[in-house]
Simulated scan of single mutants.
Amino acid sequence: MGINVWSYLAEYEAEREDLLEAVDKVFRSGQLVLGTSVRSFEAAFAAMHDVGHCVGVDNGTNALALALRALDVGPGDEVITVSNTAAPTVVAIDAVGATPVFVDVRPETQLMDVSKLASAVTERTRCLLPVHLYGQAVDMRAVNQVAQDFGLAVLEDCAQAHGARQSGQIVGSFGDAAAFSFYPTKVLGAYGDGGAVIVDDEQVAATLRRLRYYGMDDRYYVVETPGFNSRLDEVQAEILLRKLSRLEQYISARRAIAATYDAAFAGSDLGLPTVAAGNDHVYYLYVVRHPAREEIMRQMKGAGITLNISYPWPVHTMSGFAHLGQGVGSLPVTERLADEIFSLPMYPTLSEPDQARVIDELLRILARL
């Protein structure tokens, strides 16, 4: 049997009864759109982050885009973020008419290099968008200090870091707003698309609810400001509500697998993940580095083990963003990482025998390089 970098099948078998009950509950409720399940999940997710409001939306990309709009970011504004991220982070900035401005990342953590933020700020800068990559947090104390110094909004991209903490504080609770994706691969994943924005500010939350619902206040059916059809589905909300109660179990399993990998590869020449001081990593991905990446991945695939690269093409090098003028050579650390990084299989139900097989095959390959 092959080993995939991610799979939900064993988790589904273990949780099947509860998940099917969730679907049945929604279908029997008489409310298929913006009903009890969405409201219950929003309340639980907001409470988990100790913030006032959660607004469920259809996916993580729109969570970012609607959050930017609700924070009054739009045409003529600049948003500072990173290129070492999934393209949707930058697509969302572009979708609101703003201009993404990239800063480089730290080589050891691959997270935003916060020391470069202040020099990237211009008179057009409106928002800082740190990406909590792979399951751990950017230095939010430093991000918030720059935001305070220059009067900027802070939008956290938490798509890869559900439940992660920094100095005891949960990610998503540091900035003015935070966007989440519940794509199936995520630490908290739905069985389809889903997303959410969490905020403390009641007015911003009200704006978000209108934006996800055509721009309407749902009590009056009158468009105040044109919006979108970006609602979180009732079925996915009910599934997420039930999975939310198991989030700490998922995180514990991921950390155990990461610890096993750490111990097994400690003596090798594989570049292992570095956890920044004060961070509690949730290991959405277990990302390693090696200059012979392509050969390693080829041989692992031959052994029936699929690995992944997150991300092989930094966003600033993509043709769709060539107009930004930050081409090859502008972000040397990001570009160097893109040539070496790859992910090992990581999901809560990855069995111990499969973990051992990944380790044995990779150690064998490393020894022969």
Rank of each mutant, 00 (worst) to 15 (best):
V315W: 01
V82T: 12
V204W: 11
G325I: 14
F45V: 14
S167C: 09
G97C: 12
A164T: 01
I359P: 03
L366M: 10
G189Q: 01
L128Y: 09
V275Q: 07
R255L: 09
L337K: 05
Y347W: 15
R209G: 05
S310M: 13
P273L: 13
R106A: 08
C127W: 06
Q136R: 03
I296D: 04
G168C: 10
L128A: 13
Y213L: 13
R126T: 15
A322I: 15
V138E: 10
M346H: 10
N84K: 12
M1W: 11
S330C: 11
V90M: 06
Y283E: 12
V223R: 05
R231N: 07
S252T: 15
T61N: 06
T122C: 11
H316Q: 04
I309P: 03
V275S: 03
G135F: 05
I3Y: 13
A142T: 04
D193Q: 10
V282D: 07
E13H: 02
A259G: 14
R298Y: 05
G227N: 06
G60K: 02
V23G: 07
V146T: 15
G215F: 07
D280M: 10
Y214L: 15
P75L: 05
N144A: 00
P348R: 12
F180H: 09
T89E: 00
R124I: 10
R39W: 00
L133V: 12
G320V: 05
V197R: 03
E11S: 10
T207W: 11
A205P: 09
V171H: 00
E238H: 11
V57Q: 06
R231P: 01
M48D: 06
F180R: 08
F265T: 02
L64Y: 04
G97M: 08
L285T: 14
R357K: 10
F228R: 14
R357Q: 04
P107V: 14
N59C: 13
L363I: 01
L331E: 04
Q110R: 14
L66C: 07
D157C: 09
T61C: 02
V51A: 03
L344Q: 09
P348T: 07
A10M: 08
Y311T: 15
S29I: 15
A43C: 06
S7D: 15
A256Q: 15
A118D: 11
Y134H: 13
E224K: 12
Y220V: 14
P332K: 02
L362T: 06
K186L: 14
L34C: 09
N229S: 12
V57G: 02
E234Y: 03
T122P: 08
V358R: 13
F27G: 04
N59R: 11
R212D: 06
G168K: 03
N229R: 11
Y286K: 10
A266M: 04
D18I: 12
D200F: 10
L241K: 09
